[in-house]
Amino acid sequence: MEKEKEFAKIVTDNKSTIYSICYMYAKDKSEIDDYYQEILINLLLGYAKFRGESSISTWIWRVSINTCISFIRKDKRKLDTIPLSVNINQIESDDHEGKQVAKLYQRINKLDKLEKAMVLLWLENMSYDDIASVMGMTVPSVSTRLVRIKDKLKQMSND
């Protein structure tokens, strides 16, 4: 029970991070909840084996990004319960902030799955060591790739 409480608290504390990742990977709004549920399942399954070798937030990022990269949409049976969905209309509202978020979504969605993961980790202000740990790369490789991705993003905004 203690472990369950601990897990519920971790999920609650990192909910916005998980949803941000889902939002950036989802092709349409209805896919966000599917991603979220899949990530929660993987987090729950992995939590028992989590030994604390990395920080909890790095681990959550790793599981979430791996889930989104390897995600295949399944036809899930509708449950009686209403999923804890976010109100996307409020996120992509017509005000200045909403437009900015939509702009970010458009930019990031022009990248491929791996590039997307690296940009999200970089936006989260993670160190190159942590990005390397999440992505399973070496630090020099992270640095080189990030430079290329940043160039690509600059190029996109110039076009």
């Binding site: 916005s16 978020v101 936006l123 202000n125």
Partner: peptide, 15 residues
Amino acid sequence: MKEQWTLLQNKLNQQ
């Protein structure tokens, strides 16, 4: 983009 990312996180926190 960093600013937009912070905006997204703030909006989701309010959810």
